[in-house]
Design a protein around this nucleic acid. Structure first.
Length: 188
DNA sequence: TATGCGATATTCT
DNA sequence: GAATATCGCATAG
């Protein structure tokens, strides 16, 4: 797993997010990420370490779970060396397993809408703040798995929902995937 | 299909 | 008091 934030954001495209629950396993392929590198003024670590972004400063490969907009829980994968404060935001998944359970958690039967958007991922996968700081590299209740490599083109655009550093192309996605969030018109 | 707005936790000014 | 790494519903075209 790459240590560099931008490399990690691209590396994670196509990887699997696996959630082990007593009722069964839920799996989604990561199709969209955003990098928040060190020193990025739109990142949560920019103003230093606080009680709520503590896990953002862990070594790479851990979970940083944050509550945003009063309504949404967001899941990030930490990057860089311990003490740096950088991460990759997971923005969208393609549901692969446990789809019926995701539908029940999300309250919709449209597969493309189950995990298309960062706040939806955590609802579909039943991730909450208890996972803040958890190690995602080793098998556990929540971990990152690899899929057989398949041919996919990775596109890069500007990030969504921020007001600073808006011109940096740090959002990565699988070209042509209907499971990617945001505006539909994307460069192929 | 596109745009607008309310809900609502946490932090910063 | 304002801003924020958002979503879902409403309304209009």
């Amino acid at each position: 797993m790459p240590v560099d934030t931008v490399e990690l954001a691209q590396f994670l495209i196509g990887k699997l997010l696996v959630r082990e629950l007593s009722g069964g396993r839920r799996i989604g392929r990561i199709v969209e990420t955003e990098a928040y590198p060190p020193g990025d003024s739109s990142g949560h670590a920019f103003r230093g370490q606080t009680a709520s972004n503590r896990s953002l400063f862990f070594e790479h490969g851990r979970a940083y779970v944050h509550f945003s907009y009063g309504t949404s829980i967001l899941l990030n994968v930490t990057s860089e060396a311990a003490g740096t404060g950088a991460s990759v935001l997971l923005r969208a998944l393609e549901p692969l397993a446990g789809i019926r359970k995701m539908m029940r958690s999300r309250g919709t039967s449209r597969i493309v809408d189950l995990a298309r958007g960062p706040g939806r991922i955590t609802i579909a996968m039943r991730v909450d703040k208890r996972f803040d700081g958890a190690d995602l590299c080793a098998r556990g209740p929540l971990w990152l798995g690899t899929d057989s490599q398949q041919l996919m083109t990775i596109g890069a655009t500007v990030r969504i929902g921020i007001s600073r550093e808006m011109n940096r192309k740090l959002r990565f996605y699988v070209c042509g995937s209907p499971f990617v969030s945001g505006p539909k018109k994307l460069p192929a």
